[in-house]
C-alpha cells in the first residue's frame, strides 16, 4: 500500500467521523473543512492538480464560510447550541443502515475484477487540454452550470430575504 494514500485516507475518514460525532456545531464544521482539504490532497495525490485547487478554493474558501454563517445566524447563544443527540434508536438504526450499505459496497468493490492500468497513468491532463475540453466539447455544459449558479444565487436571495411589509412567516 502507498503510504501517502494511507495518510490521506486516514485524514479524510478521521475528520469525517469526528465531524459527525462532535456535539459542537462549529467544531463539526471546522473538522469538515479538514475533511475537504483531505479530499483536495487526494486529488493532488491522484494527479488532478486543477481539481485539487478548485476543491480547496470552493470548499475551504466558500462553502465553509456558508456553513459557518449558517451556524452563527441560527443560534441564540453559545451555551444554547441546539441539542444534537437524536433518539437512541434512530442513531442505532442509522449506524446499522450505514454499515450495511458499506458492507454491500465493499463486497461489490472487492469482488469486481476491475481493469486497472497503474503502469500507464492516464493522469496529469495538462491545463491547456483541460481548458480546450471545457471550452470546446463541454461549452454547453459550462453555460448550463453558469445559468444554474445564477439561478441558485437569485433563488437563495429570494428565499432568505424577509418580506418587506412585515408579513413574516406568512405562508
Amino acid at each position: 500500500m502507498n503510504l501517502t494514500f494511507a495518510l490521506i485516507a486516514f485524514l479524510i475518514l478521521a475528520s469525517a467521523v469526528l465531524a459527525a460525532t462532535r456535539r459542537d456545531l462549529i467544531h463539526s464544521a471546522l473538522l469538515l473543512v479538514g475533511n475537504w482539504l483531505g479530499v483536495a490532497f487526494f486529488y493532488l495525490w491522484a494527479g488532478a492538480e486543477f481539481v485539487a485547487f478548485a476543491q480547496a478554493l470552493v470548499y475551504v474558501g466558500a462553502i465553509s464560510m456558508v456553513v459557518l454563517f449558517a451556524v452563527l445566524l441560527t443560534r441564540r447563544m453559545r451555551t444554547e447550541l441546539p441539542l444534537l443527540v437524536a433518539t437512541r434508536d434512530r442513531v442505532v438504526s442509522a449506524v446499522l443502515g450505514g454499515a450495511a450499505v458499506f458492507g454491500v459496497l465493499a463486497v461489490a468493490v472487492l469482488r469486481t475484477p476491475l481493469d486497472t492500468n497503474p503502469a500507464k497513468p492516464a493522469g496529469s491532463v495538462s491545463m491547456l487540454s483541460l481548458g480546450q475540453q471545457l471550452m470546446g466539447p463541454q461549452a454547453a455544459a459550462v453555460l448550463i452550470v453558469g445559468v444554474l449558479l445564477t439561478v441558485s444565487l437569485l433563488g437563495a436571495v429570494v428565499l432568505a430575504s424577509s418580506d418587506a411589509d412585515g408579513k413574516e412567516g406568512a405562508p
Binding site: L30, A40, F50, F53, A54, A56, V60, G61, A62
Partner: peptide, 16 residues
Amino acid sequence: EAGVLYFFAAGAATEL
C-alpha cells in the same frame, strides 16, 4: 501549471 489558482486556494483558508 495552475499557479494562480493555487495562490488563491492557499489564501482562501486565511478567513477561516
